[in-house]
Design a protein around this nucleic acid. Sequence first.
RNA 1: GACCCUAUCGUCUAGAGGCCUAGGACACGACCCUUUCACGGUUGUAACCGGGGUUCGAAUCCCCGUAGGGUCGCCA
Length: 470
Amino acid sequence: MNVRTRFAPSPTGYLHIGGARTALFSWLYARKTGGTFILRIEDTDRERSTQESVDAILQGMEWLQLEHDAGPFYQTHRFDRYKEVIQQLLDTGHAYHCYCSKDELEQMRETQMARKEKPRYDGRCLGRTDVPEGIAPVIRFRNPQDGAVEFDDLVRGKITVSNKELDDLIIARSDGTPTYNLTVVVDDIDMQITHVIRGDDHINNTPRQINIMRALGCEPPKFAHVPMILGADGQRLSKRHGAVSVMQYRDEGFTPQALLNYLVRLGWSNGDQEIFSRAEMIDLFSLEAINRAPSAFSPDKLLWLNQHYLKTLPVEELESQLQWHLQAQNLDVSSGPALADMINAQRERAKTLVEMVAISRYFYEDFAAYDETAVQKQFKPETADTLQAVHAELAALVDWKAEPIHAAIHAACEKLGLKLGKVGPPLRVAVTGSTSSPSLEITLELVGRERVLARILRAVGFIRSLPAAG
RNA sequence: GACCCUAUCGUCUAGAGGCCUAGGACACGACCCUUUCACGGUUGUAACCGGGGUUCGAAUCCCCGUAGGGUCGCCA
């Protein structure tokens, strides 16, 4: 059997973390089995679906590189087909017109709730033969009255729901447009979906969908309902509650590799393994290993993974990911060290790409001011002479490379009779404006001879201009 | 309220009856490394929701509670 999975978002917002994970699982399963991954846009709600959302979802999928093999298919392009199926259901007695008004239905719900019953349509229009004037009817699916629907969920096992719990749901609105439960069924059949992998908020829809499929004479696909993702506070993640767009993670400096790795470990595991390349994910993934309990999103762990990828990803990969951030933070790197050198110097010091850019500015442009506490701690009156001596030593250097720079600094220390601890820190502040940077010699090499020498002199002048501390 | 689902450290999880005095990871603490910031290394704190069964033996199986989540739309 050729596996076919699909990701079927409704374009009423961006692609968020939860959606991205179900997309990832569907994609992984298709890749793992050599199957086909289909992207379907469920845009039957004309009121709320927008092109911007479609674009945002597509952009998110592309950033994560969850490439689809077919689609995107738009449900709004398939209305003729849905009409056909609805007619078929009508013809075979599996569906009927309902003329109840919204008020009437609302009242029904209220009285049922008042009686502490599960609110459900009571089927009062079933078998109705008159055709009231001036009312545009909806069409309801005639759900079986007896028995139960049973299906074997690939992550949860057997799930049974009595047909008594299911009412006759609306499959076509009064304006004739089809509703969700009808369109999913038709599409999953037509697209020959073999495995429906989706959030477990759909678990309760599944029995209804199975009934519709059977009414259509089709065998339902296999289902795998993956648990929801909770916010860091344990509350469900939703558009209203902490669910941010995957693109926001790009903006905040996360790599898609880290996000994917984080997402795959949320609710799925392979023993104690934490780090997964795409190839490993595909190789090791299985629906059976998906956890049944919902899991909370941990920003800290994502950050840790991101740093891991910053440390280990090929430089070229980071170079290309960095481009967007350089633009966003408006840093021109044309007049400084090669990006690759900067990355290698900073990759162990940054948790995000945003941070990497932020802590690397001094390589490419002069800083406006020294860090205040750094000045207090490192710039003493006598530091001016120290720096002057270091300047002399460095100015004499012909080969501006880390090793000779290292040697020159040590030579200066010796001449001054000072330990490196007295010379290094102020030098660092002079050259970078702050107390943290890669190792001194690397930093100086990358900042470049001219800039280093100028900055040392600038610091000397700055220190001499400071009011004597007394 | 009814129905469905779930339940191991703060968090992500390992665990498919004895290998568990419950393992790993993140976060947190301590120590080591160190010219700063980091990286890294070592180490520590910390969990089987409760109660009944089944069994020689239960984190693992069953039941009942409890708690959390989901669904009950002319949304998807």
